[in-house]
Design a protein around this nucleic acid. Structure first.
Lengths: 197, 197
DNA sequence: GCCGAACTTGTCACTGACTGTCAATTAGTG
DNA sequence: CACTAATTGACAGTCAGTGACAAGTTCGGC
């Protein structure tokens, strides 16, 4: 990654942090892009050069994490049960949700995501797209392992959708239930209630 | 349902049909609300009196179907396995997806939903909200049957999330795979690959 | 058939997210 | 230091969506 890309990410992070502070303070919808731009001291136009949409300021980071998770999925042993592989790559998401130290902002921000239709929609859509990629990865590795799924077999997609559903269930349960357990434990618990047949 | 409500739905249907014709013809994003308004011969302002958002013109119908499905869920025997109950209420959605007769418009429209980020996001969000309500219904009936889930038990949410994931998987598989099987069969197949433990 | 309350409609003015363009500035490269 | 490429702000414009209001329209009670 070149220097350009690095400074770009720095600015992105700065915008995101300032914006999320405002979102938590005043509410997501009540905060305009102009407010955010003023807070970081740049023009509104430039904010959109770092984030395609207002929602992206909040959920954009997920795109990067998704990349890591997909790579991790491809790196898993080809003969590992799919359900187990998915559980393992979710570990990469954990520190971003159950953020060590900075729960102060991350926690209320997540609540905002789940209570703001536009943000929730955006979040779900990102997860869905990641799910598509995960399905492909799973089909590829089954192919490589010599036991390919037939093209019209919905199994890989159903497994991914089920696992992601559990992930979401775990996140909501974890957010609702105070800090009685870690997010990782919540995922374990959710993914134990259903699974491949 | 009063007369006013009935005429209201009639107008909604008229707008939705005209709009979807345009969406299929010219593309969703390339079609403006002004275009739709002109097509049905009313002011743009009035279109928004029938649909809260542009996306709602496409996915709004799902809200009504969701109501029916939730009622059906509450009407299911309290001792039926949850997975089975969910499978059964999905039957109410089937005729709206695998629409008898009017595949001409419904089919390409569904493809548009899955390929237009804003629409997909909106669709997923609606399903998610329905999932919330379904979770409540399931907890209620377990309570009524004398075996309540504990408040922090993620099982009901995970079951719902998993089942809805399968539904989505089935829909995508069905859309992709031509008409080799019925949508109902696709759901059966997806929901057979995973399930409660 | 008439009337007032309730509902619907179009118009207008406005906000806010986003985009294209261009000229000025800034920052890496040789 | 000079050159090229990327970054920026300013500006004008599109489109979705909202609030307010005045002009119809509908409908039950008389």
């Amino acid at each position: 990654m070149g220097l350009r890309e690095r400074t770009r990410r720095t600015v992105q992070k700065e915008i995101a942090e300032a914006a999320q502070r405002l979102f938590v303070e005043r509410g997501y919808e009540a905060t305009t892009i102009d407010d955010v731009a003023a807070e970081v001291g740049m023009s509104p136009r430039s904010v959109f050069r770092y984030f395609a949409t207002k929602e992206d300021i909040v959920v954009g980071k997920l795109g990067f994490v998704a990349e890591e998770m997909l790579q991790a999925l491809r790196d898993r042993p080809a003969d590992e049960p799919v359900w187990e592989s998915l559980r393992r790559i979710f570990d990469l998401l954990v520190p971003h949700v159950d953020a060590p130290g900075k729960r102060e902002v991350a926690d209320p921000m997540q609540r905002i995501v789940f209570t703001t239709p536009a943000l929730l929609a955006s979040y779900l859509e990102k997860l869905h797209v990641m799910g598509d990629a995960a399905e492909t990865a799973i089909r590829d590795r089954a192919q490589a392992a010599g036991k390919p799924y037939s093209d019209d077999d919905p199994t890989p997609r159903a497994l991914v959708a089920g696992a992601f559903g559990c992930l979401l269930a775990a996140q909501k349960a974890w957010l609702a239930g105070g800090a009685k357990q870690s997010f990782a434990e919540a995922i374990d618990q959710a993914m134990a209630t259903i699974g491949p047949r």
